[in-house]
Design a protein around this nucleic acid. Sequence first.
DNA 1: GCAGAACGGAACGATCCGTTCCACTGTTAC
DNA 2: GTAACAGTGGAACGGATCGTTCCGTTCTGC
Lengths: 218, 218
Amino acid sequence: MTETEPARRGRAARNDSVILDAARAVFLEDPKAPIAAVAERAGVGMSALYRRYAGKEDLLRRLCHDGLRRFIAEAEAADAEPDGWAAFTRFLERVVEADVHSLTVHLAGTFTPTPEMRRDAERAGALGAALAGRAAASGRLRRDVVTGDVGLVLEGCAAIRVPDPGRTRELRLRHLAMLLDGMAAADAPALPGPPPAPGELDWRWRRSPGADPVSAAE
Amino acid sequence: MTETEPARRGRAARNDSVILDAARAVFLEDPKAPIAAVAERAGVGMSALYRRYAGKEDLLRRLCHDGLRRFIAEAEAADAEPDGWAAFTRFLERVVEADVHSLTVHLAGTFTPTPEMRRDAERAGALGAALAGRAAASGRLRRDVVTGDVGLVLEGCAAIRVPDPGRTRELRLRHLAMLLDGMAAADAPALPGPPPAPGELDWRWRRSPGADPVSAAE
DNA sequence: GCAGAACGGAACGATCCGTTCCACTGTTAC
DNA sequence: GTAACAGTGGAACGGATCGTTCCGTTCTGC
């Protein structure tokens, strides 16, 4: 157990990130993908996976938690922006661009979250609400938009998907721009229906991993 | 083979629609649901299913084709509206409300379409493009919106989903209203990115039933 | 009663997938 | 050198899932 083991550690560390990148790509494509697809994409065997993660659930939990942390980081970074509306739009653009929503929401329900994840999810929600509040205070957000509408926006953008990932990002940002114009339409008639309640879109987080899937998209 | 068999035919005909309704509900919830879930939901056995459809693929094809016909019917009905913008918005509202998009797009790729379905899909695309053209001609549609953007809108609305179907419909229509305001923002800055090309969102229709989901760029 | 349509649901066979296990390789310690 | 071992590839296993079939039963019309 000496200190210096450069070669072994180096290759193992490289495999760490290779596996994580492959897992992210594969599970963003298909949340129900078999774990063997991750190994194949990473160019490693199954052993390299199971040496690092106790099982599929562990890997998914890690990916989702990373996405959650990214969400929080983007929210905090955007919050540094002095203009409330600019902070809001920049935040949404970055989150859509990084495909964080798929990483968090679409993977939820496939594992049992840790208490720390629940805390982070709560914090993420608070940060998002704060940004929406600042956007509202800036006066550029139409008055009948509530925090829950942000969840609908992210959900809608994440649903757009074409075979090419780069093109997917372009189309999502285009769609988001249209949505932002809709959210900024101050003189538009009131939005129909009761606005989304705060906890109404968090139902995925409460489902146990064995529950039957309601979505797909699948 | 006599002509009058009221009781037998009556119950069989009733089961026909019961099964179709159950299948629609089940596969809208989860496109990959097992066929036994349809039987359970309909309150019938497997035999009642296989008496009517040669297999799962047959049933899915039927559902998808029905959705396609509904799409066409809504488009034609909306086209009767004299005002181009009203026709456009009414069309989108009806299509979102009926959840036609999930029925057609999310089920595509799980079966091999018939030639008639391909023709109907083509006609549906033409009708949608015509409505978008009328909306553009009315002057209320922002100039940089193209027909392909309509596909993005429908995709985004269909992605919104909560456990309760009725609430899902409400939230989708609310989201659609915001999107329509974004599409009507005549003085907004130009949308970013290359606009969606006509055939760019039809890739699901071209996939064979055995293909793995999404299968990112290669 | 009889023929047969319609049906319910158990059973089967194939496929898929998560996990384990074993043999192999290169590196380190002595 | 060589023993020990971390790291690995990939085949094999066992359980679960699901589409389909099949057999026994019920109900209808004659």
